[in-house]
């Protein structure tokens, strides 16, 4: 039976929401507090969901140690304690958590080879979260 495994990670980073498509006043109006030129930070919680048939030999979709190792080597050095606006990925894109979930999805999908990546879900704060499944709909009727 196909199974979906979700692992949660966390990192802290800062960002400022400001779009070159709008003027100063418009940016302030649209992004409010998040437009503060000095930036602000969050403790992001990231959920990665991978899917597949459990391997008959190991009972696993993929070894969690491999997933943890990938996150430790490829994700954390880029994002933990970073200013998201400084990253290449956000040079021309506003580092909203919508765009952060898309960026993380593509990094996992392109670089993590041990399992199929289904979805990224990010909690920016306890009060909001964002999900991206590579453009697919969430929760298909199974």
């Amino acid at each position: 039976m196909k199974a979906y495994l979700t692992r949660r990670y966390k990192f802290s980073a800062s960002h400022r929401l400001h779009s070159s498509h709008f003027g100063e006043a418009e940016n302030r109006e649209i992004y409010g507090k998040c437009n503060n030129p000095h930036g602000h930070g969050h403790n992001y919680r990231v959920e990665v969901t991978v899917s597949g048939q459990p391997d008959p030999e190991t009972g696993m979709i993929c070894n969690l140690a491999d997933l943890d190792d990938f996150v430790e080597r490829r994700i954390m050095p880029r994002f933990a304690f970073s200013n998201l606006n400084e990253l290449e990925a956000f040079r021309n894109i506003v580092p909203t958590t919508e765009n952060l979930s898309r960026e993380l999805f593509h990094l996992f999908a392109e670089e993590f080879r041990r399992a199929s990546v289904e979805k990224i879900r990010i909690e920016e704060t306890m009060m909001n979260s964002f999900e991206y499944a590579g453009g697919r709909e969430l929760n298909p009727e199974h």
Binding site: M1, T6, R7
Partner: peptide, 20 residues
């Protein structure tokens, strides 16, 4: 039955939907 979700810890859970 739509979904079974099992949390092993707060940071690790598995979902199944009965798909082959």
């Amino acid at each position: 039955l739509y979904r079974v979700r099992v949390y092993e810890t707060d940071d690790l859970f598995v979902d199944v939907y009965g798909e082959k």
